[in-house]
Design a protein around this nucleic acid. Sequence first.
DNA 1: GCCGTTTTCGGCCCGACTGTTTTCAGTCG
Length: 571
Amino acid sequence: MPVHNAAIADAFDEIADLLELTNANPFRVRAYRRAAQTVRGQSRELWEDVEAGRDLKRLPGIGEDLAGKIAEIVSTRRCALLEELRSRVAPGQVELLRLPGLGPKRVRQLRLRHRVQTPAQLRAALAAGRRIGVPGAATATGARLVAALEHRGVPVRMLRNDAAPIATALERHLRAVPDVATVVVAGSYRRGRETVGDLDVLVSSEEPAAAIDAFCRYDEVRDVVARGRTRAAVVLLNGLAVDLRVVPAAGFGAALHYFTGNKAHNIRMRNLARRAGLKLNEYGLFRGRRRVAGRTEEEVFAAVGLPWIAPELREDRGEIDAARAGRLPALVRREDLRGDLHVHTEWSDGSASIEAMARAARAAGLSYIGIADHSRYLGATHGLDADALRRQSRAIDAVSVRGITVLKGIEVDILEDGSLALADEVLAGLDYVIGAAHGGFGLDEQRQTRRLLRALDHPHLTILAHPRGRLINERPPMTFDLAAVLARARERRTWVELNCQPSRLDLPDVDLALARASGVPVAVGSDAHGVGGFALLEPGLLQARRGGLEARDVVNTLPLGRLRAALARGR
DNA sequence: GCCGTTTTCGGCCCGACTGTTTTCAGTCG
Ligand SMILES: Nc1nc2c(ncn2[C@H]2C[C@H](O)[C@@H](COP(=O)(O)OP(=O)(O)OP(=O)(O)O)O2)c(=O)[nH]1
Ligand SMILES: [Mg+2]
Ligand SMILES: [Mg+2]
Ligand SMILES: [Zn+2]
């Protein structure tokens, strides 16, 4: 089995942690972290590049040394530096580093001055009331350390979808504060990531004290972690951390740019400004002491010679170069969607009738939907067999909702051997066929790839749905040779899905970028199981936008006639 | 460790908050 980008990135991140603990040059640490990010954001598998002898130094942040390390990891599955560092750093040190308020210096102090090497030892020391020589161990930092120790375990990032109502309520609270002009949730939330580590809320006000006060007094706040004149940080009762930043309107655009990130994008932008003899910070873009831009983001980008870059693209994955070259994609928007081909009804595990779903789709501004209820498969409680599918077909014929066309599809299970769970002649009668794996996630890579390739070879398959099979924070994505699967999809004129269920968002952004580059159209499907399900299309599309997809890359932006034609060509 | 329409060496984004630092280091965004 080849070594995947994620494994290479994990190795680099671990090296960065360990280097930090050995007092290494912080810029060397940063180089490893940046490289990890770059590798993780690649849609092509680097092991293929290594095997093909392609030059990895073309990647940003990858030079002679790191290109060599990638080759080493790919070909030997080991990394000598990583192993050497592991042997030098006591277990537990990395975990200490993860605690909020503890960095390399304090971890070192703990080890040298207090013989505290692990979180367990720190807990014991704090419990015994020992004075710990890290600044403030007895007060705020100490309390936070204890709290962090209590909550130990891998911190899970909250689904963006779960954070959304929390963000909305907090926005409402802050908008009601006198003198607050604007409230925006920035950070990874604004960039449309599928999960968020915290909420980063930006407020524009000429009276920062009032906003910060109202923020810290918010009902839902459990702890105030930091509180100053321009920013504050809290933890909510539900465990979500929130950072607040308050700035005057004259610098709001620069602050929004700063707080939206990501960090690597910010650093690149600041370097760009620097090379032009300017200084970019969260207060504006400055030439000397004079502010030359800052009120809006457009102004800031324009002042460094760039068009505005959509937040979804600000991951330092080449967007700044693309912007400079005038090659930014015209990202797909919600208004571009004309239909939705992944809709469930009460005929399987949905909660609404065909007609109710059609009406809801019309209310959502769509002009066609495709009913794709589950086929009967092992373990499915409500699945359609051939007979039920025939009856559903007549039921669809009987539905008439003005302005909406209802297409006939199915979501048929892809079995472990790659065959489909319904007979060919049953599938042949439908407008289209969605295939999806609902089991066999643990197949090894080679077999998983064979399985999906075989499914794509099926004469009736139209859309490969949620291809990675991930459930965020529950089930990891399946590993298979995506490039091979996409190549076959292109040959077979089949499509891949972006499933908009908040815990799926599958294919994910990086994979969508590869689909686009491979010329495989994407079907954006709500996978609605009820009349409210179409609301998932908009947040789901953030993933498409992060992958750089344009309207022309998404099949359900086609008007019905052209969609039908495309369906006919594919079969 | 990376990188160069001024550089192949010497820089590496810039600022807020905390704590005991009496003038700034550490950590974080
Ligand atoms: N210039 C600069 N900006 C930073 C730095 N660290 C963070 N930021 C900015 C960009 C980030 O998107 C923004 C919010 O910081 P967060 O730590 O909350 O990160 P972000 O929201 O991107 O991801 P998250 O989901 O919270 O892990 O602050 C930094 O070191 N330098
Ligand atoms: Mg954040
Ligand atoms: Mg934050
Ligand atoms: Zn479904």
